[in-house]
């Protein structure tokens, strides 16, 4: 059942839990189990900062089945305030409003729902900073 796999991933999806190399300090999201991709050092789990800026983005019009309800949606390439780079869906923003360099912050949203079981998968999305 795909719901079981989703459940195993829930913590890093909910809370921006990544990994950090104990040797070179490189950070990863999603978390990388085992050795650092850059130096081969040991990694440990860390909670990453919630804020970042948009480096690049794409607008998805032809969505996979689980995301059809979201279409069109924006996937951003984001650099967090500690330098970690990651891909994430953007929310609370229309395709015409998105700009490279804009300040973003993480929030929790519905990602998709499994049709047969009704199981809801929540996860991190990024939205323009509200302050």
């Amino acid at each position: 059942m795909p719901e079981i796999t989703e459940w195993r991933d829930r913590i890093w999806r909910y809370r921006l839990i990544g990994t950090k190399c104990k040797s070179c300090g490189s950070t990863y999201y999603p978390p990388r189990n085992g050795k650092c991709f850059r130096c081969g050092g040991e990694t440990e789990e860390v909670e990453l900062p919630r804020r970042g800026k948009l480096l690049s983005y794409t607008i998805v019009y032809q969505a996979p089945t689980l995301y059809k309800h979201s279409s069109p949606y924006i996937v951003g390439y984001i650099e967090l305030s500690n330098g970690t780079r990651l891909f994430a869906m953007l929310t609370d923003i229309e395709p015409g409003e998105v700009r490279v360099g804009m300040e973003l912050e993480a929030t929790l949203r519905r990602l998709y729902t499994y049709g047969d079981s009704g199981h809801i998968v929540y996860g991190v999305k990024f939205r323009p900073v509200v302050e």
Binding site: S70, T91, D92, T107, L108, R109, R110, L111, Y122, K125
Partner: peptide, 13 residues
């Protein structure tokens, strides 16, 4: 609510 919001995500915020 947006298509990806519900009472739980509002509570989270």
């Amino acid at each position: 609510p947006s298509y990806d919001e519900d009472s739980l995500t509002i509570a989270y915020e």
